[in-house]
Amino acid sequence: MTKSNKKRDTFIELLIPHKNTLYKVCKNLIWNSNDIEDALQTTVLSAYKSFDKFEEGSNFKAWMIKILINTVFNFNKKYTRQSMFEMFHEGVLDTGKAYYNEHDNSDMFEILERENVYHEILKDPLKLMERLDKNIKDSLLRLNTAERTVFLLKAITDHSYKEIANILEIPVGTVMSHLYRARAKLRESLCDYAREAGLFRNKEV
């Protein structure tokens, strides 16, 4: 009795510091916000059940995120017939670019390079960010699942490419290309938003 109590307490102790990170990842990745609590509950319980398999000293946060991501995708599966594998490999397989290649993808940032608005944003991002909160979410929705997942994991959890690759069980190169495209697309959205809002108008040629 005391032994299992100790196990539970250790588990909760490890869990507490990552509460907010887990909540944010869950909130941002789950499709139906009504599922957040259920998904977290399921995650915590299934993590606890396999807690014996968790090696002490290894990355608890990454381990929890992995279980969370799997749970969240299982919850999302209710609304789609697409599997997690398809979500992360579809685009890559379609374009035949299985691995990140800076030269092949550079066109996305080159397009940005030609946009004056982008340079204005770079000079004064706060002007845009102050009014952006909700808009970022909309921009994120324009990313596909794979890109959004990788970008959010990078942004919220601060994991390395390798850790993200382990969590999602995809190659590191795929993480890179998803992240690259996500960042480029988000920046395009920022430009669109800035143009629509009329920011930097006076400076635009």
């Binding site: 539970r8 909760i12 869990l15 509460k19 907010n20 909540y23 944010k24 909130k27 941002n28 957040i36 609590e37 977290l40 509950q41 915590v44 319980l45 606890y48 991002p125 706060l126 960010m129 952006l132 909160d133 970022i136 959010l152 942004a155 919220i156 988000l186 920022l190």
Partner: peptide, 27 residues
């Protein structure tokens, strides 16, 4: 960083309450 900060500092007022419920039910 400012993009990320919007996401990171995303105020999650429901997080505390949700976690309280999750952990007590888990226990």
């Amino acid at each position: 960083k400012s993009l990320v900060s919007v996401l990171k500092e995303d105020k999650v007022p429901k997080a505390e309450v949700t976690w309280e419920g999750v952990i007590s039910r888990f226990s």
